[in-house]
Simulated assay, not measured.
Amino acid sequence: MLGKHDHSKRNRIQFVTINEMVPQNHLLRKIDKVIDFIYDLVQPLYTIDNRQPGLARSF
Rank of each mutant, 00 (worst) to 15 (best):
D36H: 09
N50Y: 03
F15N: 15
Q14I: 00
F37V: 00
D6F: 01
R51F: 02
D49T: 07
V34L: 10
F59R: 13
K9T: 04
R12M: 13
D32Y: 07
Y39D: 13
V16F: 04
P44H: 01
N25H: 11
P44C: 02
H5C: 05
V22A: 00
R57T: 15
K4C: 02
I38D: 12
Y46G: 00
L41H: 01
Y46S: 03
Q14D: 15
I31E: 00
P53G: 14
P44M: 02
L55T: 09
P53K: 12
I35H: 06
L55S: 04
K33P: 00
F59K: 12
M1D: 12
G3K: 03
Y39E: 08
D6R: 01
S8P: 00
V34Y: 09
R57M: 14
E20V: 00
F15I: 13
Q52G: 09
I13D: 00
L41R: 07
R51Y: 02
N11V: 09
D36T: 11
N25P: 00
L55C: 01
I13K: 11
R12L: 14
Q24W: 01
V34G: 02
H5S: 10
Q52H: 08
V16K: 07
S8K: 06
V22T: 03
Y39K: 09
R10C: 09
K9P: 03
G3S: 06
Q52A: 12
G54A: 15
H7F: 14
L27D: 05
I48F: 06
D40S: 13
Q52E: 11
N19C: 03
P23F: 04
D32M: 04
L28A: 03
L55R: 00
I31H: 02
N11G: 15
R10D: 12
M1W: 08
L45P: 04
G54T: 07
D36P: 01
M21H: 04
L28W: 11
H26K: 08
H26P: 06
L27N: 02
Y39C: 05
T47D: 15
S58E: 06
S8W: 04
R10V: 14
M21Y: 05
N19K: 08
I18W: 05
S58F: 06
Y46C: 05
